[in-house]
Amino acid sequence: MRAVRYWSVSHAGAMQRVYQALERLLIMIDPLLRKLGYQHLEAPFAAVERVLKGWFFDCRMCGHCVLQSTGMSCPMNCPKQLRNGPCGGVRADGSCELDPAMRCVWVEAVRGAARLPGERIQVIQAPLDHSLVGRSAWLRELRLRTAP
């Protein structure tokens, strides 16, 4: 829902803290998750993410979450799915070139990023790996972080 999505950007700071707490929790219980076997966790993790991130961010399950670099505004809601900044077509009132009823996700991202510490919005994002679409981004991140 767009209203919830905009709300999440307005509360980007709190959202990021929740995200980081979740990250710490997952890293803590990683030995247990590892024992259960990541491959068995893929489906339940993805299902939870789909619901939660879907509700708060209109998440599209790209499988490679960059919310913390985009002011908690999901870039996959951009009709061009731009992950590195706005296109040149943003309307004068800040709405999207292709969907005038929607605020440009990057105008939102800039608004959200102003509420977050650091300059993560400046990071150059690699093009999306389409083989990850639909998979759990949290699990992937966890595996990358705890990889020996």
């Binding site: 900044g85 706005p86 943003v90 990057w106 800039v110 919005i121 400046q122 150059i124």
Partner: peptide, 13 residues
Amino acid sequence: VPPLDFQVARLAK
């Protein structure tokens, strides 16, 4: 076009 103050940051990127 908006976000006006971000356009330079985008150019830097």
